[in-house]
């Protein structure tokens, strides 16, 4: 799973859309979702994001639903937990003799609201993650005037995550072929050994990277030439109209409850 979001981001059908537009769309939509007091608007956003991901970006539906599963599982748990915990007006209850277990109206409604927000939020976040290559996001972060140190470290970190992951997998395979993970006790020992070695490798790589960069003229800041052009105004207006539309729906339907 580790490679897949990243590799999909580089190969999907929407990868050439201006990243500033995608970031604007995702951030505004997320804000509208967490602002919404109605469960209908987030569900609508969920449907729209899913449509964009599966049919426009052509991300395999199986991968997308696999990524959604934690949100669905945790969401169902939240509905049950909140229905059980909050409010006082019981809809139905079971008397177990010593304790009465039941679901309340207020709690269930709140649980459903949170569930829908999670579905809408996770699908919108996945839209950004699955359609925008991380390298383009760094340009957006730089354009947003985040501190240089932060963006530089993030860029180098992104590159080295995959280098270290490769080393990790190589060492893990080496350990497994020598029965290093045959039970829990050896697993811990091997994993600790592996991570300690990885840290040492990390350190050596860091020192080498500094030498490499210095020999190419590094003087404390990384210079980047490429700029991302601004999107056409019409698209920006389109996104803002869409967000206002969702916002109006969320306000109009804020009194509709399931129970």
């Amino acid at each position: 799973m580790k490679y897949s979001i990243d590799s999909i981001a580089f190969t999907n059908n929407l990868k050439d859309v201006n990243p500033k537009l995608k970031v604007l769309f995702s951030l505004l939509t997320l804000l509208v979702i967490v602002f919404s007091k109605s469960f209908i608007a987030p569900l609508l956003v969920f449907l729209i994001s899913s449509y964009l991901i599966i049919f426009k970006a052509k991300v395999p539906a199986k991968v997308y639903f696999y990524l959604l599963l934690p949100a669905i599982g945790f969401g169902l748990f939240t509905v049950v937990f909140m229905g059980f915990w909050y409010g006082s007006e019981k809809i139905f209850s079971i008397n177990l003799g010593f304790i009465e277990i039941g679901f309340t109206k207020e709690g269930l409604n709140q649980g459903i609201l949170v569930f829908s927000r999670m579905l809408g939020g996770v699908s919108t976040m996945l839209f950004l993650a699955l359609t925008t290559p991380m390298t383009q996001l760094f340009y957006v972060l730089r354009w947003l005037k985040l501190p240089k140190e932060f963006v530089d470290i993030a860029m180098m970190m992104y590159r080295y995550i995959f280098v270290l992951l490769d080393e990790f997998i190589t060492m893990k395979n080496a350990q497994e072929t020598r029965l290093g993970h045959k039970d829990i006790k050896t697993s811990y020992k091997s994993l600790g050994l592996l991570m300690a070695n990885l840290f040492i490798r990390t350190w050596e790589k860091g020192e080498k990277l500094f030498i490499t960069m210095s020999s190419r003229g590094y003087d404390g800041e990384i210079k980047v030439l490429k700029e991302i052009e601004n999107p056409k105004l019409i698209y920006v207006i389109g996104i803002i109209i869409f967000e206002i539309f969702i916002l109006i729906i969320s306000i109009l339907t804020s009194n509709i409850k399931v129970f």
Binding site: E149, D152, A154, M156, Y160, I161, L164, K205, G206, L209
Partner: peptide, 12 residues
């Protein structure tokens, strides 16, 4: 010289 080091530690 600590910048690359910090980045790689973050990756770790």
């Amino acid at each position: 010289e600590v910048k690359p080091l910090l980045a790689i530690s973050g990756a770790y």
